[in-house]
Design a protein around this nucleic acid. Structure first.
Lengths: 133, 133
DNA sequence: TGCATAGTTGCATGTTAGCGCATACATGCG
DNA sequence: CGCATGTATGCGCTAACATGCAACTATGCA
């Protein structure tokens, strides 16, 4: 079910967007699993937007998704040599304006709201649930 | 003169094209320097096309160029952590259809035509010099 | 069974990107 | 100087992409 066919341009194309880089970078740095609403509260981007970006990453073979009740948890696909090295490259990216540090801080704070290791609340910034800021 | 400002999306965008991946992969694998006509004869793509792609890679900070008479030699930018890891990722890419092996073979063959380590001939496939195949 | 909520997706739109063609620029040689 | 040759680029076209809006699906709880 997972990427048997590797299309390099598609993989890099998937990372050719700042929002998608933020998502992957967050998951690469923390090696965590995250549902969509946790990503929304971390990146402070509209839900439909992140939903679509996550889909692109999944289709490129970078992420895998696992449904759990109403929530869908996303994680990095690991164990594939060129992907693992790509993650290393992402972790080595500089954070000139500190925007990634902010994402990371939001994410860690959001993780604290989990119960029994799972997300039990929804989006905490309502105006992002349907778009707009 | 070199990339002081790092824009991650731009870097990955530069690799989000099969032709550009072929170029970078060739240079990463061989750690060689190559002029444009050598790339044309290796990838068998029109000259104007590779010229433009090389420009994109240069602007993204992945390649550096050095003019030498009529020839312009291109090389990988090395020594920057996230770029070096990106090269590792590229070298770890699978070559399912053997197309990269072909590029590599063409490239090595073309290198044999150098005199004193420099390219002294032009494009050997005339129909590619101005485009068309 | 009905509602709230997590997540997905069709549509319209503005923007960007790659390509082929032709042409222009730059350098070296006779 | 003028031509041959390696390289770069403006133009027009077409296709792909990111986004906002709104509607839709899916799951759990009262």
């Amino acid at each position: 079910m997972h990427t048997i066919n590797v299309k390099p341009p598609e993989v890099f194309q998937a990372l050719a967007d700042s929002t998608r880089i933020r998502i992957v970078r967050l998951l690469a740095e923390t090696r965590e699993v995250a549902c969509l609403c946790e990503l929304v509260d971390s990146l402070l981007e509209p839900q439909y937007k992140l939903s679509r970006h996550v889909k692109v990453l999944r289709q490129a073979g970078l992420l895998s998704a696992e449904k759990e009740g109403r929530w869908v948890y996303h994680r990095l696909v690991e164990g594939i040599p060129y992907l693992d090295r790509l993650h290393e490259a992402l972790k080595a990216l500089p954070d000139v304006d500190g925007s990634f540090a902010r994402d990371l801080e939001n994410f860690r704070g959001r993780m604290c709201l989990r119960e029994a290791g799972r997300c039990r609340i929804g989006i905490q910034t309502p105006e992002l649930a349907a778009g707009g800021e």
